[in-house]
Design a protein around this nucleic acid. Structure first.
Lengths: 156, 156
DNA sequence: GCCTATTGTTATGGCGCATAACTAAAAGGG
DNA sequence: CCCTTTTAGTTATGCGCCATAACAATAGGC
């Protein structure tokens, strides 16, 4: 028989509060899931100096040589003003280069550098591990269903 | 026949970049989904002066009379230091009251006020609408599966 | 009565997001 | 051609949520 704590049940909901008003809310569950995802990412990637945004940029630059900043911002769904800052720090570290688009001196085209590729190679390994940890306990079908549902939710 | 833009296809990946390196990543999809959820929430709730955190507190206070701050913080998965600030603003607006726990003058117990209940009533209506919008296009089974997957992902 | 643990508060910094004001360059219309 | 409008990127600033550290007050164990 477990030893009773304070009052058995009635007055004080001290130990395990009633979470039911939030327990099945998409907003709440998304917040917790995203927080877990961020923590997991950070634990693996911070030694590499990578954040989700920084890795996303490098991945996109590898897959899209000479992509323009504005196009990249739209694809990643971040504001151009915020992308500017992100790119500046990556460029300072020599991970990418910005160049004027030929025939349009307003636009910047982006290229990943050799150093960027080297870091990206390690980043990909880490990211695979992060994804594995996040999907732990899910069947491949559940994983695919989750991705689909999230894509639907975000209308993308 | 659509009129061609610049070069037909070859050199410039300008219009629709390759998103494949991110398209099926949990981290990326979670970020977009959570952003959509936050925007949807904000659109409906900002006229009420409610943020996700503020509404969550009021919901929990209604369901858990005289809950202690620390217990609430743990349930909501926010740091006590951040909860302090959140509660201070809610108390300033008269939506809740803090009182010393009897027999333990360190601990604060929290009660929702009449004004808090009135706001909460409207908040619940808005939240139901937000949840409906987020779940749009999902069957009830898909919705339940999504919640389950998110709970699993966050280990809760 | 001391030492330690608990509970909450204050201060500060980071990260992602958003908006507004700005510069520079290109495009278009008379 | 010039002047206006549009496009592309930058800078500055504020908000929301998260995290840590330093602190104050109270409670509990020996």
């Amino acid at each position: 028989m477990p030893k009773p704590r304070r009052q058995a049940s009635a007055a004080a909901p001290a130990e395990a509060p009633d979470l039911s008003p939030l327990d099945s809310k998409l907003g709440f569950r998304l917040r917790l899931a995203q927080q877990t995802a961020f923590d997991t990412f950070h634990r693996t990637m911070s030694p590499l100096g990578l954040t989700p945004g920084r890795l996303a940029v490098l991945l996109m630059l590898e897959a899209n040589p000479s992509i323009r900043q504005g196009v990249l911002a739209e694809a990643l769904r971040i504001k151009p003003s915020n992308l500017t800052v992100l790119l500046a720090s990556l460029e300072e570290e020599g991970l990418l280069k910005r160049a004027e688009e030929e025939g349009n001196r307003r636009a910047n085209t982006l290229q990943i550098t050799q150093a960027g590729r080297a870091l990206l190679k390690r980043g990909k390994v880490g990211e695979a591990e992060v994804e594995r940890q996040l999907a732990e306990g899910m069947t491949p079908e559940e994983h695919a269903t989750l991705i689909t549902a999230l894509r639907l939710l975000a209308r993308g």
